[in-house]
Design a protein around this nucleic acid. Structure first.
Lengths: 214, 214
DNA sequence: TTCTCCTAGTGCTTATTTTAACATAGTGAA
DNA sequence: TTCACTATGTTAAAATAAGCACTAGGAGAA
């Protein structure tokens, strides 16, 4: 294995770079400097150069980075050359919003199956995505070989549902429930905790305010 | 100013602790140890003790932390003793989902005004929240003294809308658009970038896979 | 072709965060 | 009251991340 280990912080920024490169390419821009990128994605230019350097010498000194080259490079790195199918588990308010969220546009991701227990929507197609009853989840996930899922069920059902998902071979979960799932070590869980983030924002604002008061 | 500076990483975990303390309190638990907490919120127990220690000695050696005490303490720290009103700007799919997202349940946060340009919904009340036309935003935000907003407009309108918000006195934005807003330094922007997070998850999964292959 | 300028790549420094380890103080039982 | 335990608070160390500042090397003009 000759791959260099990419720091987590870097990995988290890659999609950001990728998205902006798509934009630049669409605009017809041919080259871009780390400084320009820095401004757009709001990451220090040195950090950007460092991030890129983990993958080798991608740019040209005195010139910058070739947009098309870089774009294609990251496309491969980020597995954007193949469509990734993900499942949506729980089609409530948030789930519904995500069904309409166009992941495919800039990211090559598609929600290809949804699951819920509500008989009013199971069996239907919502926003182009078939909604199955939860009882079919394991079967469908396996058949469609889906390994990534977005979890949007109520907190009370979260762990139980997650367990079924692990059983069905799910390897990555984007968890919208406030519960910290217990999961096998082979499974990655990415928590999206909106209430917490809003709370944190409020906390920072209040501490900013205190600072000014003193 | 005798306050100690709280590290950002700590601040981001506070709402997590708070939420779990509410749960423990509801369960009737009287004490909790850092180890127990660690398991529930999936943060190393030493980190938890360290986090707490920034606020002084909150626990008792050989005993743990008193749930009620700790809960009340964090309630104040996190400004949970007063209701925080926030605005929702852009009532599309995501905005609509957030209107129904119960921030108030565990966090003392309420969306008290929403704004959109769609004449079909402006002037109505959705999920208990009045929806105003965008042209009234500045006026309403000022009158209602709202300083925090959730931005859910299309990317193309994001910066322009944000500028109006700054103008209206907004100090914190939870930004659901993929655009990195340029904002005055006095304003905090918290980016919630779902496509990026999903992308990152996929990247990590693929690199996990590579690891096993070798 | 030459020379100036620009910007990538990188060694090193600093800041931040996490983790380990332990002395200590207080608990709770006898 | 004593004593064994338990879990905090904290010191020190390690790991991770960010950023400065310089070198080198190609770009592009003259």
């Amino acid at each position: 294995m000759d791959e260099i280990k990419i720091p987590k912080a870097t990995a988290r920024r890659l999609p950001l770079y990728y998205r902006y490169l798509i934009f630049l390419n669409d605009e017809g821009k041919e080259k871009v400097s780390s400084t320009e990128l820095a401004e757009a994605v709001q990451v220090d230019s040195a950090s950007i150069r460092r991030d890129f350097s983990y993958f080798g010498a991608l740019g040209k000194r005195g010139y910058g980075y070739d947009v098309k080259n870089l774009l294609n490079f990251f496309k491969k790195i980020l597995n954007q050359d193949t469509l990734t199918n993900v499942a949506l588990v729980g089609v409530g308010n948030m789930g519904h919003a995500l069904l309409n969220y166009n992941f495919k546009r800039t990211n090559n991701i598609r929600i290809s199956a949804a699951f819920d227990i509500n008989p009013e929507i199971t069996g239907t197609i919502m926003s182009g995505v078939p909604v199955y009853d939860m009882s079919e989840m394991k079967k469908q996930l396996r058949e469609q070989q889906i390994t990534i899922a977005i979890l949007c069920v109520p907190q009370t059902a979260a762990q139980k549902t997650a367990n079924e998902m692990f059983d069905a071979g799910i390897k990555g979960i984007m968890n919208f429930t406030p519960l910290r799932l217990s999961a096998p070590s082979s499974v990655r869980v990415q928590n999206v905790d909106l209430a917490t983030e809003l709370q944190t924002l409020i906390y920072f604002l209040d501490s900013d305010k205190d600072k000014n008061k003193k």
